[in-house]
Amino acid sequence: MTRLERSLIDAAARLVPLSYRQTFVGDLLEQYERRRRSAGPTAARIALVAEIIHSAPSLTRWRLTRGVVMNTHARSQDPFHMGRLTPGATAGRALGLFKSFYLRALAVFLLVHFPLRMVGHFVRSDEAIAAALQSVALQALLANGLLLISWTLVEGTLLATLVQRRRGHEIGIPAALKESLRRFPTFLAARTLFLLAVAAGSVVLIVPGILATCLLMLHGWLIFDRGLGALAALKESARIVKSRLRKTLGLSLPVAGMTLVWVALGVLFVAQTLRFTAPLMPIFKIAPFTMTLMETGFVLFTILTGILYANYSPNGSSLEESPV
């Protein structure tokens, strides 16, 4: 596709209300690609230009009756979109969303994460399993694998809910869980690659780990909002954040701090709870529950990535930064 065609698509897309923009561009690209395969690139190019010219009057009318208002309206309805991104305002918005979302997040954690965490904890601490596996490393790998699966499922469920909330819809936990399961393989692959990149960066020095986290942290939103594959989502995340790396670091620091405070409070809570309950009941029965409370702090960070995603590419549109 030449630069002219990209510019044409970009121009046409700007006439489409934000909530329809990605779908409209997707349809144009699909039509172009199909025509290119069946009749060659020249015919595809002519059809694309004809389609855009043919669509222009309808799009302008649509924009005038709805789009001009809708543009602002869609943004004002999007709880993640902010007028001006400053570290303080970002932290405040993240905290506000966290408060309004916390009970839902806790329910998801208790329904999805808690059972798998219990199993993981059991696998890690049970002597019979250790004897059967005959390897401490294998036992730890199994327990951590369960945690990773659980965490990915939970975050997928939360992301599916938040993506719909950005679009002005509310979905229940079962529907969100179903969506999370549908995208599970992709998200798990992306999450594993993300963790490997962050771990590799952190082993070398702390700074490359932080940079890798910043660059790749939008991958979940890209998978759930735009339906990208694992590698494509990581690459797109890096592309979006790359030009705003310093700004992203600045914006993330207060939220990272709040997350750490929450987790620290959680650790204190766990320690206190265990002090009183450990003599009364086995630790593995109570620890996953208290740790679940602690881990909800990481939801704050998911919300931060949502705020950055919404403001770096409103309504998931990459057209704001570059042509298609």
Binding site: D27, L29, D225, G227, V324
Partner: peptide, 15 residues
């Protein structure tokens, strides 16, 4: 409702 986009649409979802 939205559905997956795929490579042919540059990953953009279908509505």
């Amino acid at each position: 409702g939205s559905g997956p986009g795929g490579a042919i649409r540059g990953g953009r979802p279908r509505r």
